[in-house]
Design a protein around this nucleic acid. Sequence first.
DNA 1: ATTGACCTTCCCGTGACTGGAACCCTTATG
DNA 2: CATAAGGGTTCCAGTCACGGGAAGGTCAAT
Lengths: 128, 128
Amino acid sequence: MNIGDVAERTGLPAKTIRYYEDIGLVTPQRGSNGYRVFRDTDAHKLTFLGRARQLGFSIDECRDLLALWEDRNRASADVRAIAKGHLDDIESKIKGLVAMRDTLAELVRDCAGDHRPDCPILKGLEGP
Amino acid sequence: MNIGDVAERTGLPAKTIRYYEDIGLVTPQRGSNGYRVFRDTDAHKLTFLGRARQLGFSIDECRDLLALWEDRNRASADVRAIAKGHLDDIESKIKGLVAMRDTLAELVRDCAGDHRPDCPILKGLEGP
DNA sequence: ATTGACCTTCCCGTGACTGGAACCCTTATG
DNA sequence: CATAAGGGTTCCAGTCACGGGAAGGTCAAT
């Protein structure tokens, strides 16, 4: 498989796949013409990476998950620890965003949004 | 006021304040020794910027908000449009994160997290 | 032989800072 | 008066995970 084929199969842009090779996440072989040659295992790895990235795992977390995925003697506790850590990150991000949204929604709600200059949003940004 | 004073008053790191000057958000004067000299209006601007950034507005949005803030003839509709656009962004970010969290929480819930290699999280990342 | 679709490497840019190096200014102290 | 601490200054590089685009090599079909 060339990079275009694997890009289509995995849904990842070719650029991303090259980047993943750069940082050592996949190691495709090379054909005599210099083209990357991907085997099925490479495609599977990339699918795995794509899904992990979709779930918001960082590249470093993906690297660790990938290592565990390929380790038949792994302990599921190690996988779970990474996922749980990331889950906590997401939760706190959500909390931050919800707080932002609530504050902002209140300001937007109170703003007339007409031709007049008087604006509670700007007032809210001035100070507490 | 020197940069340290205004940093303390606004809660922004000095580095950030210098950066804001670099990109033209504030234009403090300079003393004979080359030090930045901040007036009260500068400090107020920076407080405004800090709060806008806390609410997740981008630097470009902050620039626009600042211009409106300083324009006595502004229409509150313009402010509201920016805020509403940003609010929508936040909402969709929250939605994305909540979807991530739900998927991930399910995987974490189903994972035993013990010494055995069997792991629903890795299985979930393999494919649908 | 030439097109057009692939592929390659390389370098720069993103957003909003942060860290660090190397150096200057001010004030307090021995 | 020398010095040390604690400000300040500029500039450069790095972050994260790619994306855009240039310059050029390769392949299949016409």
